[in-house]
Design a protein around this nucleic acid. Structure first.
Length: 252
DNA sequence: ATGGTTGTGCAACAA
């Protein structure tokens, strides 16, 4: 089974690109972030036509998460403790709990949103401690808006104040990971690889990006994972998202 | 220091 995560930056604006990628990749599950639309205006029929059932937790204009699956999916849970329903969506698929997360961007140091970002990571970790036993088969995927290590950004020395690579953000990310997750991409690949490139300043063409989209497995899930890779291709297409998909392959 | 781009929705904000 293959499960992917992709910040699509508006599911309606991105429909042609998402359709093309789903058809050529043939992944079983796609967790999306920044769908930017209400559940009522989500293009459900378009996903059904491609053979995918859909779980949605959206809002107008901002945020929004959704999971498309062509294998049986059950027990959708929006948010954590009822909070942030447009950022967190969990479902059960083949005995695996898949959590789709769009973690806060946070802005610059000193912005109100920056402290809220750090508090989100702390609070969400505490929620995972309460909600899930450590032996659970758990897959946490999504746009975490933080790059973990120097290799995951294009200029680590000059980026100490860059959104997504500040010391406080990296510490918050590591604290969340320490629930018991394994960074699946880094387990299988040691090379530099980004998942997001700013639309501005030709950052993609200049190969200046960050690895801020992640797939993390609990111990008991990670032993079943046989690969995790980044598919850069859809970032080269017309009208792309600024992010590109990460794919996890799990042995049956 | 600012600007650069994209999406939503039609001005301004978020990323």
């Amino acid at each position: 089974m293959r499960i992917a995560t992709w910040n699509v930056n508006s599911v309606r604006a991105r429909l042609p690109v998402v359709r093309q990628w789903l058809q050529q990749s043939g992944v079983d599950v796609l967790a999306m972030q920044e769908t930017k639309t209400l559940d009522e205006t989500f293009p459900v029929a378009e996903f059904r036509d491609m053979g995918y059932d859909i779980a949605i937790s959206g809002q107008k204009t901002y945020n929004g998460v959704a999971i498309a699956s062509r294998v049986a999916m059950s027990n959708p849970v929006k948010g954590w403790d009822g909070r942030d329903p447009s950022r967190i969506l969990a479902v059960e698929i083949a005995g695996i709990t898949v959590i789709d997360g769009y973690l806060p961007h946070g802005g610059e140091r000193g912005d109100e949103a920056f402290q809220r970002k750090l508090a989100f990571f702390e609070g969400f970790r505490a929620y995972l401690d309460r909600a899930y036993p450590a032996d659970r088969q758990l897959l946490l995927v999504g746009d975490f808006n933080v790059a973990p290590e120097p290799i995951d950004v294009w200029a680590p020395e000059e980026m100490q104040d860059a959104i997504g690579f500040m010391r406080e953000e990296r510490d918050a990310l590591e604290h969340l990971r320490a629930w018991g997750f394994v960074d699946l991409f880094r387990t299988f690949h040691q090379e530099q690889q980004y998942t997001w490139w700013d639309y501005r300043m030709n950052m993609f063409k200049r190969r200046m990006g960050m690895r801020i989209d992640h797939a993390w497995g609990s111990k008991n899930l990670s032993v079943r994972v046989v690969d995790c890779l980044v598919d850069v291709e859809p970032r080269t297409w017309e009208k792309p998202s600024d992010h590109t998909p990460v794919i996890v392959t799990i042995s049956s």
